[in-house]
């Protein structure tokens, strides 16, 4: 039986494999798995690593996560207040940048690996690396320079600064976010992360017009990738559609994997990628809360059959809401394993 890493490499290289790689992104579910409240669960990196390893073992999918919650990046930049819920991901409860003067005060840590807010993630990564390094790809989440300000000042105020604010302050903030991004990628790679989900809603035409994207977002995407390298980078727009930008991003950065929105047309995405990179088709996991198992199965089949021909395809979820019934998670995975099976000799992946 192949490991997740072997399946992923086979999909990237277009070589033989038993099935397509299947990524199932369970984060908050780890707390229920261990029977802990979310706050207690995320207080200790050992909890997160244990749950990640056990859930992967239980369901048989191909990846592991070092991400606790997206607001962690704000904590690394000074946020002291995270709000916990019982039924969903922790939320940033205090914006570090409350007024424009705060931009000058924003400090990028010299070494993220030494930062107190990174220590539990580091602990988690060490355990994942020790237990599953080289066998199952360890994923980390990095917010792109152009999007990170939304975590620091709120999307509303970032849009204000971006479109209506002083250009010099905007540039100053973006430069600091870029410096943070580069250090964060380094810290994750040093700690053993194999894949970096490069999250950038501002790299989607659902957020900004194509012309703006090419003139303003793209230069920062290029700077991010030029500084951090393409190794393990996965382009993702936080569930926003981005088929229209794939070609430009590929040509200007060389990023080798594209994690589509569930609302993107998978077949179109594959056609645009045209074998140059890995295409990741995703299921609408918000609908999975209410779908009956038959409908889940049908959707997985639709996505996999649209993406699998010609190979270089991965099936995955987004960050799955806690409210999805466990039965639907199982059905999704069983269907992905079934429909994602590849012919002996690996023809479909080649």
């Amino acid at each position: 039986m192949m490991t997740g890493m072997e399946r992923l490499k086979a999909a990237i290289n277009g070589t033989a494999a038993d099935r397509i790689p299947v990524f199932c992104n369970l984060l908050d579910q780890g707390a229920s798995h261990l029977g802990l409240p979310l706050k207690e669960y995320y207080a200790n990196g050992e909890n997160v690593a244990t749950a990640q390893l056990q859930m992967r073992e239980k369901y048989g999918y191909d990846n592991l996560w070092s991400l606790f919650y997206v607001g962690k990046e704000a904590e690394l930049l000074g946020c002291k207040r995270i709000i916990y819920a019982n039924d969903g991901p922790p939320n940033v409860g205090e914006m570090i940048i409350q007024k424009l003067d705060d931009i000058a005060k924003l400090q990028v840590p010299d070494d993220i690996s030494d930062h107190p807010a990174f220590q539990e993630e580091l602990k988690c990564l060490r355990i994942l690396r020790r237990e599953a390094g080289g066998t199952y790809p360890i994923c980390a989440y990095v917010t792109a320079t152009m999007t990170l300000p939304a975590l620091l000042m709120g999307m509303e105020h970032w849009m204000d600064l971006l479109f209506c604010g002083p250009a010099d302050l905007r540039e100053e903030l973006l430069k600091k976010c870029h410096a943070f991004f580069v250090k964060e990628v380094q810290a994750y790679r040093d700690a053993g992360a194999d894949l970096l989900l490069y999250s950038n809603p501002f790299g989607s035409t659902e957020f900004v017009p194509m012309r703006y994207l090419l003139e303003h977002s793209m230069p920062w995407i290029e700077k991010d990738i030029a500084a951090a390298g393409t190794a393990g980078m996965v382009y993702y727009c936080g569930s926003a559609r981005f088929n229209k930008v794939i070609d430009a991003v590929f040509q200007r950065t060389g990023i080798g994997a594209y994690y589509l929105s569930p609302l993107d047309d998978v077949a179109e995405g594959k056609q645009i990628i045209a074998g140059r990179a890995l295409c990741c088709g995703t299921i609408n996991d918000i609908r999975m809360i209410d779908w009956r198992p038959d409908k889940v199965r049908q959707e997985v089949k639709r996505i996999v059959l649209a993406g699998k021909p010609g190979g270089k395809f991965l099936f995955g979820s987004l960050l799955m809401p806690m409210a999805i019934p466990e039965e639907n998670i199982r059905v999704m995975l069983e269907a992905a394993y079934l429909y994602g099976r590849l012919e002996e000799g690996g023809g479909a992946n080649g």
């Binding site: 849009m159 479109f163 035409t205 659902e206 017009p209 194509m210 229209k244």
Partner: peptide, 14 residues
């Protein structure tokens, strides 16, 4: 047209 997007909505409204 999908190119009518969040930024345009934001600016139109503001």
């Amino acid at each position: 047209n999908m190119d009518a997007n969040l930024a345009q909505h934001f600016l139109t409204s503001q």
